[in-house]
């Protein structure tokens, strides 16, 4: 599976109006619903929030990677948002978040595909130039091009 196959134009936000952690998650989930990946919005959002409850997915460097596995997801998919203003995410480094990658995985998904996506993303996000490119991306197509590099 390639990561960029999971990205749909409907679920890329440049920018997304900032807000609370839950508001951001809800808006991005709505994008995934619009793209057809998420079928039951509320169920999926609850899964993502439950994961945030365990420990924040704010991984530092101004990036968060919320994710959820739920029966409300029809196919594995990815949403990306650049926030209009940094938002608090209770991150590892206490820095606010300005970019969010959100992952949706169907409940019956066999395998650890979503883990692999998260791992590949986590590794990539360490690289300054990757983050910088995403911050500077001017169009949705450009974001897809950048993510293709993973």
């Amino acid at each position: 599976m390639n990561i960029h196959d999971l990205l749909n134009k409907d679920s890329i936000f440049l920018p997304l109006e900032s807000g609370s952690r839950e508001e951001i998650i809800r808006k991005m989930a709505a994008g995934l619903q619009a793209s057809g990946a998420v079928t039951d919005l509320e169920q999926y959002v609850q899964a993502v929030l439950a994961r945030e409850q365990q420990s924040s997915t704010g991984i530092g460097f101004g990036v968060a990677i919320p994710h959820g596995k739920s029966a409300g997801v029809a196919k594995a998919s990815l949403s990306f948002a650049r926030l209009s203003a940094p938002a608090d995410w209770e991150s590892l480094d206490d820095e606010p978040v300005s970019m969010v990658f959100m992952i949706a995985v169907p409940e019956e998904n066999v395998g650890n595909e979503h883990l692999k996506i998260l791992v590949a993303l986590s590794r990539k996000l360490i690289h300054e130039e990757f983050r910088q490119q995403l911050l500077n991306a001017k169009s949705v197509d450009e974001v897809i091009e950048i993510v293709k590099s993973i």
Partner: peptide, 10 residues
């Protein structure tokens, strides 16, 4: 999930 691999990459 994330931190293990981020630290490795870093």
């Amino acid at each position: 999930i994330a931190h293990t691999y981020m630290a490795a990459e870093s």
